[in-house]
Computed example of a mutant assay.
Amino acid sequence: MAQLLGPAEIRGLAAELDVRPTKKLGQNFVHDPNTVRRIVELSGVGAGDSVLEVGPGLGSLTLGLLASGAEVAAVEIDPVLAARLPATVEERAPEAVSRFTVLTRDALKLRADELPAPPSTLVANLPYNVAVPVVLHLLAELPSLERALVMVQTEVADRMAAGPGSRTYGVPSVKIAWYGRARKVAPVPRSVFWPVPNVDSALVSFERAEKPASSVDRDSVFAVVDAAFAQRRKTLRAALAGWAGSADRAGKLLRAAGIDPATRGEQLTVTDFAAIAECEGVPPSV
């Protein structure tokens, strides 16, 4: 059984490596074993699962995931932290060494062929400033990912899981919904991190689902989404004028998609946005 890291071990490792956590890399290390166990439990991973962990840091969550019996590929951008992880696993979970791989990479540039096996689950404590881009990149790059559990800033969690009509519903909400369903499942207290962050955190779960449209590609839908939310207070007829070529044509395309041109973007589902994108190929004379 893996020996999880507590506050003393986290500080000891940081001192050994002369690591001074930086805001730039979003380095706030989890030092509470009970929180780690809860994350692993909520992720649903177990023996035989292939897990991708992003931002393992000093290895707190890594050890918890390995204790579940899963195979873990950890992607760490900090070369100092990445270099220490194998030794931490060997010291505290020697029976799991063969199930662990670490890659020194920027997760935003990770490619599927760099991983030892196609992962089925993403479990991560994500830097708040890149959380949404990382999740979207990995969902696009790794079709094998069926589910995820990510720890992010509470405000980011709200945006990721928001539904139409919500105050926090926007581009991240719609783009993540293209791949499946996100839910905010639990808060995470600041006290479980070192150093203590000045923001609250939450866990977001994700389950992949069928895409909302088979006849239109992701980039076409995302172009409509970006245009619709670029000017949130405008009606879709006005907001999509640049995308469609004119406000008049935007109105015609919206009506062709069965959507009132006076509607605003925050009222639409991802299926609605896909319907608009499908109408893009309608001749300009329509």
Rank of each mutant, 00 (worst) to 15 (best):
M1W: 11
L4E: 02
L5H: 00
E9L: 08
R11E: 15
L13I: 09
L17I: 01
D18Q: 15
L25F: 14
N28E: 11
V30P: 03
V30G: 06
V30M: 08
N34I: 09
I39H: 01
V40E: 03
V40Q: 03
V40C: 01
E41Q: 14
S43G: 00
G44E: 07
G46E: 00
D49W: 05
V51G: 01
L52T: 01
L52D: 01
L52M: 01
V54N: 02
P56A: 00
G57C: 02
S60H: 04
L61D: 03
L61M: 03
T62M: 00
A67G: 12
S68N: 06
G69S: 04
G69L: 03
E71H: 14
A73M: 10
A74H: 02
V75Y: 00
V75M: 04
E76N: 00
D78L: 00
P79H: 03
V80C: 08
A83I: 08
L85F: 02
T88V: 15
E95A: 14
V97K: 02
V97S: 04
R99A: 03
F100R: 02
F100D: 00
T101F: 03
T101V: 12
L103Y: 02
A107V: 08
A107K: 08
K109Q: 14
P119V: 06
P119A: 07
L122P: 05
L122K: 06
V123A: 07
N125M: 06
L126K: 03
P127M: 10
N129R: 15
V130W: 10
V132F: 09
P133K: 09
V135A: 08
H137E: 11
H137C: 13
E141I: 13
L142K: 13
L142Y: 12
L145M: 05
L149R: 02
L149I: 02
V150K: 03
Q153C: 07
Q153D: 05
Q153P: 05
E155S: 04
A157N: 02
D158N: 14
G163L: 14
P164R: 10
P164N: 11
G165A: 12
S166I: 10
R167S: 13
T168N: 13
G170M: 07
G170E: 07
V171Q: 11
V171P: 11
P172N: 10
P172H: 10
S173Q: 03
I176C: 04
W178D: 04
G180N: 01
R181I: 12
A182D: 04
R183K: 14
V185L: 13
S191P: 09
V196R: 15
P197L: 12
P197E: 13
A202M: 09
L203E: 08
V204A: 07
V204S: 06
S205P: 10
E207H: 13
R208N: 07
A209W: 10
S215K: 14
V224I: 05
V225H: 04
V225C: 06
V225D: 05
V225G: 05
A230T: 09
Q231G: 08
Q231V: 11
R232C: 06
R233T: 05
R237E: 15
A239C: 05
L240P: 04
W243G: 06
A244S: 06
G245T: 02
S246A: 04
A247V: 03
D248A: 15
A250I: 08
G251P: 05
G251F: 03
G251D: 05
L254I: 01
R255M: 12
A257N: 00
P261C: 07
A262Q: 14
Q267K: 15
F273L: 07
A275Y: 07
C279N: 13
G281R: 15
P283A: 11
P284G: 09
V286G: 09
